[in-house]
Amino acid sequence: MYLHKEINSIEAMPQSTGKGVSMKMLLSPDESPNFAMRNFIIEAGGFMPLHTNTIEHEQYVLCGRASVQLGDKHIEAKAGDILLIPAGVSHSYKTIGDEAYSFLCLVPKAQDTITLK
């Protein structure tokens, strides 16, 4: 089976955790046999709080810049960067500048438990 979608046809769903965070479910676990693909958007001045997941994350930054905490490290992520966040590693995001920070996030098709820190 194949699937074709246009990203602009997918509604961004506001997320209750953080500030100015929304998510587009590009490929849901029901549509893909092995992983889900999501597009997170954090508006300028927004953030996603420190948390852990029980599954890994593969991310590709589409636009903007953010201060990203990965465990005890802080990095500045920008368009074109690739991040691998192993399961259980705490992470957070805070936008830098006046542009939204947007990234693709791929996760394995598995039960995920999110724990806020």
Score class of each variant (00 low, 15 high):
residue 70 L to C: 08
residue 73 K to T: 11
residue 86 P to K: 12
residue 111 Q to Y: 12
residue 20 G to Q: 02
residue 30 D to I: 02
residue 84 L to C: 14
residue 114 I to G: 06
residue 87 A to S: 11
residue 111 Q to T: 12
residue 76 E to R: 15
residue 90 S to A: 13
residue 57 H to E: 10
residue 37 M to N: 07
residue 42 I to G: 03
residue 59 Q to I: 14
residue 100 A to I: 12
residue 56 E to K: 07
residue 73 K to V: 05
residue 87 A to V: 05
residue 96 I to K: 12
residue 96 I to T: 02
residue 74 H to V: 15
residue 69 Q to C: 04
residue 11 E to K: 10
residue 66 A to P: 07
residue 82 I to K: 13
residue 72 D to T: 09
residue 58 E to G: 03
residue 75 I to P: 04
residue 100 A to D: 08
residue 40 F to R: 03
residue 94 K to E: 14
residue 93 Y to I: 15
residue 95 T to S: 10
residue 107 V to M: 14
residue 46 G to N: 10
residue 12 A to H: 01
residue 30 D to L: 12
residue 37 M to K: 09
residue 15 Q to K: 06
residue 80 G to E: 03
residue 107 V to E: 12
residue 67 S to N: 08
residue 96 I to V: 11
residue 20 G to V: 01
residue 105 C to S: 11
residue 93 Y to L: 13
residue 57 H to K: 11
residue 35 F to G: 03
residue 28 S to T: 14
residue 41 I to T: 08
residue 34 N to G: 11
residue 36 A to P: 00
residue 28 S to N: 11
residue 106 L to A: 15
residue 29 P to F: 08
residue 115 T to G: 00
residue 44 A to Q: 04
residue 56 E to H: 02
residue 49 P to V: 06
residue 114 I to F: 06
residue 117 K to C: 15
residue 29 P to D: 13
residue 68 V to I: 04
residue 94 K to Q: 15
residue 107 V to F: 07
residue 107 V to D: 01
residue 14 P to N: 09
residue 28 S to I: 01
residue 89 V to K: 10
residue 35 F to S: 13
residue 95 T to N: 11
residue 93 Y to N: 08
residue 115 T to K: 11
residue 51 H to L: 04
residue 19 K to H: 14
residue 60 Y to R: 03
residue 63 C to K: 15
residue 68 V to Q: 00
residue 114 I to P: 00
residue 114 I to K: 05
residue 71 G to N: 08
residue 40 F to I: 05
residue 55 I to V: 15
residue 33 P to M: 10
residue 6 E to Q: 10
residue 75 I to W: 02
residue 5 K to V: 06
residue 99 E to P: 08
residue 42 I to H: 04
residue 84 L to A: 01
residue 101 Y to I: 02
residue 9 S to V: 07
residue 110 A to L: 07
residue 60 Y to P: 06
residue 93 Y to V: 14
residue 116 L to K: 12
residue 2 Y to Q: 04
residue 77 A to F: 01
residue 26 L to V: 14
residue 108 P to Y: 02
residue 42 I to M: 04
residue 8 N to M: 08
residue 66 A to I: 05
residue 37 M to Y: 10
residue 8 N to D: 03
residue 53 N to Y: 01
residue 63 C to V: 03
residue 35 F to P: 02
residue 30 D to G: 14
residue 67 S to H: 10
residue 9 S to G: 03
residue 16 S to P: 05
residue 65 R to Y: 13
residue 29 P to M: 08
residue 97 G to L: 14
residue 7 I to H: 05
residue 52 T to K: 11
residue 79 A to I: 13
residue 76 E to D: 07
residue 51 H to P: 01
residue 39 N to E: 14
residue 57 H to M: 03
residue 104 L to E: 10
residue 20 G to D: 02
residue 50 L to S: 15
residue 79 A to P: 03
residue 107 V to G: 06
residue 101 Y to Q: 10
residue 14 P to E: 13
